[in-house]
Design a protein around this nucleic acid. Structure first.
Length: 289
DNA sequence: AAGCACTCCAACCGCAGGGCG
DNA sequence: TCGCCCTGCGGTTGGAGTGCT
């Protein structure tokens, strides 16, 4: 289990990616598909380590990534799942196919964690760390939220393109241009599998349903409302299948809560999800004011 | 206007674990 | 079975941007 030494080499460029580097990386992946990251720097001439290439792709260049403000539904789902799974960002991200684990992690650390800690302090006087459920018994899940929904101070639903940034690396438009013509979710997509259209940064793409997370279907039908159709997904997880995402890797392992149980529980909540995602967050944000 | 403090997030670091010879 | 290679994951950092005094 040796540690990769790829980033220890001298001459490896670090820091923000340039447009040229992104172009090189995207065009290479368009040709060869993601994976075999070790060979990417060698074959492209990029002075980046393989890790950096993979990270840039998975966290920024990969099709289907939604950037910008998190919706209330997404916030609610993140809070909900974090309370269940802990800091299993990859697992949580599998339920938010348009968000990367890094994005979710950042958002949690910069927004939600503070909100929840503040709320915990205000409501119980207990300053439990929201990274674990070991503190206050009244951990922040939908099971303990009250419904004093009211006005909110959460993020507006601005499209990501409204986000302004002067740096190249933050420009979704640049990425969109790079991804023109990209039509696959993953190189592992079976060519014969039924495809599904997906819009990424305004670019129409096709996504293989089989290779993506089951809840990816129809983009979760705008996330939580998707759970109005629990039967198929419940049966899917009822067999304790391991959800696989576009890269085909397992998203959960034995250390995680049984997915069937989690799914069932979440699906049981389906009828309350809209209220959860909006009312719950409303109640939180209202309490923080 | 300048300096300082704070926020946010892209990127990095190091470990874990699976695959394979 | 063992050890190496490679990738994935979660925690952390650094710097740009923003707000405050």
């Amino acid at each position: 289990m040796g540690r990769s030494q790829c980033c220890d080499k001298v001459g490896i460029k670090r820091g923000p990616w340039t447009q040229e580097e992104d172009t090189v990386l995207v065009s290479y992946i368009q040709k060869h598909g993601p994976g075999n990251w070790r060979s990417v720097p060698a074959n492209t001439g990029l002075m980046r380590c393989s890790k950096s290439c993979r990270l840039r792709w998975t966290n920024y260049l990969r099709p289907g990534i939604k950037r910008g403000n998190f919706t209330k539904s997404e916030e609610g789902l993140i809070v909900h799942l974090q309370s269940l799974l802990g800091n299993k960002w990859a697992a949580i991200a599998s339920y938010l196919p348009q968000r990367t684990d890094n994005d979710i992690k950042n958002y949690w650390n910069t927004h939600l964690k503070k909100k929840i800690e503040k709320h915990q302090l205000a409501t119980t006087g207990c300053t439990t760390s929201s990274d674990s459920n070991n503190g206050c018994p009244e951990i922040m899940t939908s099971r303990c939220h009250n419904n004093n929904a009211s006005g909110n101070s959460c993020h507006s639903n601005l499209p990501s393109s409204d986000l302004s940034s002067s740096s190249y690396a933050s420009s979704t438009h640049n990425i969109s241009r790079l991804l023109q013509g990209w039509t696959r979710c993953s190189p592992k997509v079976k060519p014969t599998a039924p495809d599904q259209d997906l819009t990424c940064h305004g670019i129409q793409m096709k996504v293989d349903q089989e290779s993506c997370h089951p809840l990816f279907n129809e983009e979760l039908k705008q996330l939580l409302p998707a759970w109005e159709e629990p039967s198929a997904e419940a049966s899917f997880y009822g067999s304790q299948s391991t959800p696989a995402c576009a890269d085909g890797k397992k998203r959960f392992d034995a250390q995680n809560p049984p997915l069937a149980a989690l799914e069932n529980w979440l699906l049981d909540e389906a009828a309350r999800q809209v209220d959860l995602s909006v009312g719950y967050i409303d109640s939180i944000s209202h309490a923080f004011i």
